[in-house]
Design a protein around this nucleic acid. Sequence first.
DNA 1: TTTTCTTTGTGTAAAATTTACGCATTGAAA
DNA 2: TTTCAATGCGTAAATTTTACACAAAGAAAA
Lengths: 254, 254
Amino acid sequence: MEHNLKEFFDKALKEVSLDCTVFGFHEGELKVLLLRWKGTDGWSLPGGHILLDESADDAANRILTQRTGLNDVYLQQFYTFGNVNRYTYHPEKELLEKLEATFGKGFFDGIIFRRVVSIGYYALVEFDQVQPTPDWFTDECRWWSLADVPNLLFDHNEMIERALKALRQHTRNHPIGYNLLPEKFTMPELQRLYETILDRQFDRRNFQKLLMSYDILERLDEKRVGAANKSPYLYRFVKEKYDEAVAAGVSFSM
Amino acid sequence: MEHNLKEFFDKALKEVSLDCTVFGFHEGELKVLLLRWKGTDGWSLPGGHILLDESADDAANRILTQRTGLNDVYLQQFYTFGNVNRYTYHPEKELLEKLEATFGKGFFDGIIFRRVVSIGYYALVEFDQVQPTPDWFTDECRWWSLADVPNLLFDHNEMIERALKALRQHTRNHPIGYNLLPEKFTMPELQRLYETILDRQFDRRNFQKLLMSYDILERLDEKRVGAANKSPYLYRFVKEKYDEAVAAGVSFSM
DNA sequence: TTTTCTTTGTGTAAAATTTACGCATTGAAA
DNA sequence: TTTCAATGCGTAAATTTTACACAAAGAAAA
C-alpha cells in the first residue's frame, strides 16, 4: 500500500491526519520513536492518514503496526492539533529544498503541505519488542532519548510535550507499566519507570507499599540474579486486576 | 455567512467538524444547549466547520459566539470523534425523510452525511448571559437539563457523556466556577455547583475551608437577603489568583 | 576464603491531611 | 414573639502520607 501513495490517498481523508508519540522505556530513560525524512536530516513523529472505511483508532493502530511490528499497541488519543500553519512551524528553507529535490517540486503541496488537522495519540510499548521501520517518506526510524529530541518537523515538538503531559496526568490516576515493562520486572525497575515519567524520586519502601496496595502485582518466586548486590524479587502484573484498576482508576498519591 | 452555505463550505474544511457541549448552571442543575433541526424533532449539539484560515479553537469560539451571543467563551477541547459511521448512529428513517423534505434530497450527502471527523469541545458559560440562537440547519436553540437530554442525532449523546467526564476530571484538578457562576455568589451556591458536577454531597464546613484555602475567593461585605434564613455572605473570585490556580492546578480532595 | 560494598526486604512512629460533628446566630415566616 | 431552616465558625477523631533504620543477600575485591 505504501508503495502506491496516490492510490492510498484516494482512499483516505486528506484534511485529517494522525501522529503518534511512541514511548519506550530503556536503560532508565523514556525514549520516543522518530523518523528521518528521505534525503534530509529532518525528523518527525510517525503518523499518517485515516482510510475512508477506518476509524481514527484503527488507523493509529495500523500505522503503529507498520512502524513497530507490534500488533496491539496501547494507544491513547490525547489532543487534536488544529492550528492553521501547523505544517510550516519549522520552515528551514534548506530542508524544504532537499525534500523537493527528493520528492519532486510541488509533490507535497497537495498532500503534506496543506491545511491538515492532526489527531495526536501516544503509545506505550515494550522497547525490546519494537522493530523500528521507516515509511514511504522516510529512510530511518529509531529511538531517541526524550532529552535529546532535536527540532522536529511541523509542530511535532509540541506534540511530544503534550503527549508527555498527558502521560503524566494518566500516570497520576491509573496504574502504569503493563505496556512499558517486560513481563517480569523488579520493584526497583517499576519504581524507575514511575520516577522517570513523573520526574520525581520516591522512597522505595513507601513506593512498594503503595503499589502492592493496588493489588495488581504478583511477586514471583524468582529473583533477578547477576548484579553485585542482593537479588531482588521479580514481579508481574495480574492482568485481570491490572485492567480493573485501569478502568476504575487509582490515584498515585506520593 | 450562514445564509450562503455553499459559499461557506468552499472556504472550510469538509472532512473535519467540531461540536460543542455548552454547560450552564441554573436552578441547581447542569444544563446543555441543544438545537432542533428544521422541520424535525431531532436535536443535536451546536457545531460547525473550520474555515481554511482559522484554527480549530478559533472556529469553536466563532461558532459559540453565534449560538450564544457571548464573546470569549471558556472552551476546552476534550476528544476527537473519529468513528466511520458517526453520522448514522441515529438512523431513524422517519427523521431522515423529514430532513430530506426540508433541505432537498441528496443535499446532505456532500456536507453532513459524509465521513467527517469531529473535534469535541466543551464550554462553560453563565446561564443568564446566553442568548440561544439557532443556525442555518435548525430553528430552535434551547437549554436542556442534563437528565432530560433526549436521543440526539449523530453520536452527540456520547459526546455529552465524554464532555461531562472531562469536566469532572477537570474539576478534580482545577478550581471551577468563574465561567459558570455570576460575578457574585454565595458559598452554598458554589458548593451546589461542585456537588452537581461531581454528583456528590459535601460537608459545608469542610467545603468552605477547602475552597478558602485556595486563596482565590474574596468575601464581600454584602449578603444575599430575601430567603427565610440567615443571610449568607457574597463572594467573588479574585481573577488573578483564580487564573494562577487554574494554571498551577489544585486538587479538589473531598 | 574472607571482607567489602552496594542494594534489597521489612515495620513503626511522626506529621499532615481529611473527615466528622456541635452550637450559637441570623432573618424571614408563622 | 416564636419558630424554623440555613449560616458561621472551631475542634477532635480518623485516615493518609511521609520519614526513617537495620538486618540480610550476593557479587566483587582483597
